[in-house]
């Protein structure tokens, strides 16, 4: 039972990190109909900027803030230079964003050097709490809390604010949103920047947890994020959360019992969902291709 709980907590924490990348990705796909394979690159950049900023300031909060700002800026640049010319063309999107993913990884080596960076957490987040035989690592608990808080904030913005309403409407019918007098292009840019910032924050949170930041981590987590978006339903934030937790938990348990099958179980999960619910676990109703 204790082992089960420990594995569950670790799985949930991993799921929350994947959620931070996937929720931006799902909104970008749902609203903008853009397949952004460069999204994982923002995760890696967030990790490096976070580690770098923590090294300079010794402030965990400032390091997270620096990663978020870097994510916002990189998101703006990516949307303007890479995504804007290929709206409406999935093949070109896949090619150019995959290419840009590699560029982002290589740029990390140019800016931060070719070596893996060691990432440390602040002393007050080090260590663990013991509840009987259950050990809760403080930093993992923080990741879970941050992930849940961000989920609640995103849902509240989507549900209760005018901009959230526009984003939800845009996921369903972009053309009609424009015909109502809303500049969907500005909404696209905003969502892309926020999605990128969330991915960067995910990276910045991940690095101290794993103890390292490496340029290729974006590709690794980017794949997980895509699987989560497919399982959860494209455009659905709650779907992303549920799918990320499923992936995080299944991966965590399998990594412990049959580590060779850890990735396979995620693929099997996606395979099962695609067979029985091709539109994902949480379908966004009324989506048109306009």
């Amino acid at each position: 039972m204790d082992l089960f709980l420990n594995l569950a907590i670790n799985g949930i924490a991993t799921g929350m990190l994947i959620f931070l990348i996937a929720c931006g990705l799902t909104l970008i796909f749902g609203l903008m109909d853009v397949l952004n394979f460069a999204h994982g690159g923002l995760f890696a950049w967030g990790a490096f900027v976070g580690v770098w900023a923590y090294g300079i300031t010794q402030s965990f909060i400032l390091s997270m803030l620096a990663a978020v700002i870097a994510g916002l800026l990189l998101g703006l640049i990516t949307e303007y230079l890479i995504i804007k010319p290929v709206y409406g063309n999935h093949i070109q999107q896949i090619l150019i964003t995959l290419g840009f993913m590699l560029v982002l990884s290589e740029l990390i080596k140019v800016v931060f050097g070719p070596n893996i960076l060691a990432a440390s957490k602040p002393p007050y987040l080090d260590g663990s709490w013991e509840f009987g035989d259950v050990t809760v690592i403080k930093y993992r608990a923080l990741i879970i809390v941050v992930g849940l808080l961000l989920f609640l904030v995103i849902m509240a913005v989507l549900k209760f604010t005018k901009i959230g309403l526009i984003v939800r409407a845009g996921v369903m019918n972009k053309e009609m949103v424009q015909a109502l007098g809303i500049n969907i292009r500005l909404v696209f840019i905003g969502v892309f920047m926020v999605g990128s910032a969330l991915a960067a924050l995910g990276g910045a949170l991940f690095a101290p947890s794993s103890g390292v930041a490496y340029a290729e981590m974006g590709m690794e987590f980017g794949i997980f994020a895509f699987i989560v978006v497919i399982i959860g339903g494209m455009g659905s934030v709650p779907g992303s959360l549920v799918a990320a937790l499923l992936v995080g938990l299944s991966n965590g348990f399998m990594a412990y019992y049959y580590s060779d099958l850890a990735m396979a179980v995620t693929m099997i999960l996606m395979f099962i969902v695609l067979i029985f619910r091709p539109e994902g676990l949480f379908r966004v109703s009324g989506v048109s291709n306009k």
């Binding site: 053309e175 009609m176 949103v177 424009q178 015909a179 109502l180 007098g181 809303i182 500049n183 009324g286």
Partner: peptide
Amino acid sequence: PYHIAKKGIGYVPEDQGIFYGLTVGENMRV
């Protein structure tokens, strides 16, 4: 299109353009 709408043209498309996942009130508000 958004600029044209702001000039004062309302549009009711053939397929009605209802946002199915939004409530009636939210459709009006958006």
